[in-house]
Amino acid sequence: MYESLFNATTLPVLQQVVSFTQARHQLLASNIANLDVPGYRARDLPVSEFQRQLAEAIRQRNETPAFRSPGEPETYATSRGLEPVELEDLPEMILYHDDGTKGLEYQVSEMLKNQMQHNLAVSLMTHQFNLLRAAINERT
């Protein structure tokens, strides 16, 4: 019962977005922490690949009507199998000769984008829950 209640909305999608941005935030933070390590190669999760997989999953869900036996959870196969990739070319590399990828500004600005994406998904989630609560309580 709860599956159909929660999965009918965009909550599963938002959940994937939040878990992706959280995982990415950890990676970006570790990049900043290792900024002064000689030869450190910065890593990042591929955002466009995640967006592509998510769009694909949404398309599949909309195409196939949910002929599922009761209690069988809906599967949402995204953000799994996404491996961190090493960043190739950052502008600050011109200053160093240790083949490491550095760039404080780049990391911070990616962190900002990631944080805004995370906050957006969380507030949309809150909004969804408020709607559900309003429906359950029959008042706002």
């Binding site: 502008p91 600050e92 011109i94 200053l95 760039g103 500004e105 780049y106 911070v108 600005s109």
Partner: peptide, 10 residues
């Protein structure tokens, strides 16, 4: 803007 930050710092 970020690219400009990096460039000016270099």
């Amino acid at each position: 803007s970020t690219s400009a930050l990096t460039a000016q710092r270099i």
